[in-house]
């Protein structure tokens, strides 16, 4: 974390800014405009845009291509890379290609299992796991060598990140896994959407106790709830999601047309708590197919304007 920052996102974090990133899912199609329209909604309100890699195992425009469309708009992308679809040869090759196109942030994931997607009959790869991918990115950055030990002409200096789910089981292993990700090379961590604040805070306390917040920047995950139905669905059906009953009750307790406002209110309360939680360095807003909600959240949370990018 002490060397020259790889990206603007890293630079802001090093400077101690409370950063804001948002998620952008590429389209199920090839229209560049589908990406740039999302970029327009986010421009000026976030420090970096995280572009998913065939999330939920559904075929979409590649993360790499969508990242380039955002770069052309002057936005900073975080490219997601999953180990589900590519072996180590393809992962290294795509990393080099991404770097050559100007991508400087990489989020390393194992990826949603293909059985959740539209092509459950596909073969998965999982040659390496997300922690081994982090180690690969770190090795290439710090030694300028690929996984075979071959010395590359230049070292691709990527700011590597990882995901963490404080709400998954077994809880006692969650911080060990976070430590492993950071030791393997994660400079920033994006968490699963936070609704269960007590559990998140306990996880943060353990992370601080082990000095992990000194070694990596933790961005709290935020997803605005739009309806009681969405809250119920996510609680019951989305893997790794923890939505306490109080939150579902709050969403159900308001008339349908007010549910969006209530969801927004929950978001803002969560962000406020995160700002005051030691070791939290920013928020990552995952407004799935509702990128228009990001600007109002950022403004209402007092996080606008964003610091100027270089």
């Amino acid at each position: 974390m002490k060397e020259k920052p790889c990206s603007n996102l890293q630079k802001l974090l090093v400077n101690g800014e409370f950063v804001v990133t948002a998620e952008c899912g590429p389209p199920r199609g090839m229209l560049k405009e589908a990406v740039t329209a999302k970029g327009e909604l986010l421009k000026g309100y976030v420090d970096a845009i995280n572009v998913t890699d065939n999330q939920t195992a559904i075929v979409r425009m590649s993360s790499l291509a969508a990242c380039v469309h955002l770069l052309e708009m002057g936005l900073e992308p975080v490219m997601q890379m999953v180990t589900r679809d590519r072996n180590r040869i393809a992962l290294q090759s795509d990393l080099l290609g991404a770097y050559s196109l100007g991508i400087r942030n990489l989020l390393c994931l194992s990826g949603d299992h293909q059985s959740f997607g539209s092509q459950p009959d596909a073969l998965n790869v999982f040659d390496i796991d997300s922690i081994q991918l982090l180690s690969m990115v770190e090795t290439m950055r710090d030694t300028g060598r690929d996984m075979s030990g071959y010395e590359l002409s230049h070292a691709p200096r990527m700011f590597a990140g990882a995901a963490a789910n404080p709400f998954a089981d077994p809880f006692e292993y969650r911080v060990i896994r976070l430590a492993k990700k950071i030791a393997a090379g994660a400079g920033f961590i994006q968490t699963q959407s936070i609704y269960n604040l007590p559990r998140f805070k306990e996880w943060m306390r353990l992370a601080r106790e082990q000095g992990l917040t000194e070694e990596a920047y933790i961005l709290g995950g935020i997803t605005p709830l739009k309806s009681a139905g969405m809250a119920g669905y996510m609680a019951a059906r989305v893997a790794g999601m923890d939505i306490p009953d109080e939150i579902i009750k709050r969403m159900r307790g308001v008339p349908k047309e007010k549910a969006g406002e209530e969801g927004m209110q929950i978001c803002l309360e969560t962000i406020e708590e995160l700002k005051n939680t030691p070791g939290v360095s920013g928020v990552h807003i995952m407004a799935i197919e509702s990128e228009n909600l990001v600007a109002p959240i950022v403004k209402a949370a007092g996080l606008y304007p964003r610091p100027a990018a270089e």
């Binding site: 299992h113 922690i131 081994q132 896994r177 893997a239």
Partner: peptide, 18 residues
């Protein structure tokens, strides 16, 4: 997911998300 370094985020109540 053939993970070598720990459980993914989909482990819930001892069961696999898949």
């Amino acid at each position: 997911k053939k993970l070598s370094n720990g459980p993914c985020g989909g482990s819930r109540n001892g069961k696999c998300e898949v």
